[in-house]
């Protein structure tokens, strides 16, 4: 059976780790959350087909990453530097904004924002991953955008 877990690790861990890094930066938090996501996946996630497995992994990794963001916000910890080079500025700005709003925005709103702004998912993809309607996705993102705008306007 150890072959099974090794195989699942080989296929799915790297995408999960990259996903966590997009939200949490290239530090220990991202590694911890990626590993926690994988362990949950191994215990109860669907390993096939890949499209279903990835949707499950994105849902769980987003959920756990947002938990971590919120706990950072409560304890006012610094945000590590980002990993992505080419879209560095955009991803840094989005990540900083998420970190700033982590305390006041609710978890679902942050999850939708992570999937949209950092992972670049379409509304349809977000709906599939979060298991909600596209209408709900639009509502969550609109709420997040309003919050972001207020944040920008505040002195």
């Amino acid at each position: 059976m150890s072959d099974g877990i090794r195989q699942a690790w080989q296929r799915y861990f790297s995408p999960v780790r990259e996903k966590c890094r997009r939200v949490l930066g290239d530090g220990d938090d991202a590694s911890d959350v990626a590993q926690e996501t994988f362990i949950r996946f191994w215990k109860q996630g669907p390993t096939e087909p890949p499209r279903v497995a990835l949707a499950w992994l994105y849902r769980t990794a987003t959920h756990l990453s947002v938990d971590r963001l919120r706990s950072r916000a409560l304890h006012a910890r610094a945000v590590p530097q980002p990993v992505y080079g080419t879209d560095l500025e955009a991803s840094t700005a989005s990540r900083q904004l998420l970190a700033q709003l982590a305390r006041e925005a609710d978890a679902e709103e942050l999850e939708a924002a992570v999937l949209s702004r950092l992972d670049g998912l379409t509304h349809l993809e977000i709906a599939e991953v979060m298991d909600v309607s596209e209408r709900t996705v639009r509502r969550l993102l609109a709420r997040f955008d309003q919050r972001a705008q207020r944040q920008e306007e505040s002195p």
């Binding site: 995408p15 990259e18 996903k19 997009r22 890949p50 990835l54 992972d119 670049g120 998912l121 993809e125």
Partner: peptide
């Protein structure tokens, strides 16, 4: 494409 689409492509 989204990272989800790219990850799916990497696997399949």
């Amino acid at each position: 494409p989204s990272f989800l689409a790219l990850d799916h492509f990497a696997l399949e």
